[in-house]
Amino acid sequence: MLIPIYILSAAALGPCGDIQQTERKILAGDVEHTIIQDTLETLTGLDMRRVGHFCETALVGSVLTIKRLKNPLDPNSHVYFGTGLGEVQKTMSIFKQTLDSEGDAVSPYSFINSIGSTTSFYIAKTAGLKSRSITACQDELSFEWALKLACNAIEDKDTNSAMAGGADEFSVPHKEHRRRLLLDDEQIMGEGSGWLYLSGERDSAIGEVIEVRYLPFTGADDAHKWAREVSNVCKPYLAGKPPFLLPGFRVNAGRLDALTKAIPGVKVRRYLDYCGCFHTAAAFAVASVFDTPHKSDSIYLHVNSDIEGRTMAVVFKAYGIGGGG
């Protein structure tokens, strides 16, 4: 980054409705949907009767992130929201209604929910924001893109602060949705959201975003070459202290092995055990790092690829208790 991008607050929602560390659970298999509408209405005090589960998933994280801010929200904050598949359940229901029962009018609520900008509309509305609002949909790299665009905007002085987050939902039957995600049999499917409130101002920061780097690899590229370049993204910031590695769900065993060898002492945090696989699991990963305070400053590296191998690496720091540096 050209200037430090501070993280002032964060929140992550997991597939079991978990919003804090004591509620996080290791998933034993694909889970069922958790009803979160009441959680959301309690959090916002607003009537959320028309939004679908996907939108609720995104909102629980965004609303909590703002609630956790120590200082008042900057009314000019931008919103950058990433989602791989967007609203799946309502889209499926309209799709089937449209093609299987010709002649039936589709539900306006469902149609509105299926539109790409609706969730970011509610994110801005619940936050009281009226500034820039962008939704990025780039498969497994959707959250990374939202984060990058947010950091760019702060660096470019387009804004002082921004919400950056990601969310995805699964649909049932599980088998059908697993195929949509192209998951291996042993991979558990999940859903959830994660949000960061970013600022150019350091006051009350809990961490900072150090790098969001795009690496144009393909799946055919050598694992060691890939690992070397990914590790180079975080190496300048380690100062002799090994980082934590958060591997995304498209990082295969060979690449993970190569990467752990390329970063001596790296500690792997298998966050997917808690949230399952979904396109924006990275958002859950990064935000849930801030579930509990850190004893000392810690560097994290999150890495994931899309199915063709394009890779994005996120390096960030969680400050230790008593303020970091």
């Binding site: 009018a105 589709v106 306006p108 609520y109 509105i112």
Partner: peptide, 13 residues
């Protein structure tokens, strides 16, 4: 207005 549209669909059904 959005509720009115949703109700219109329900009335037709």
């Amino acid at each position: 207005s959005l509720d009115v549209l949703e109700v219109s669909v329900a009335l037709k059904k």
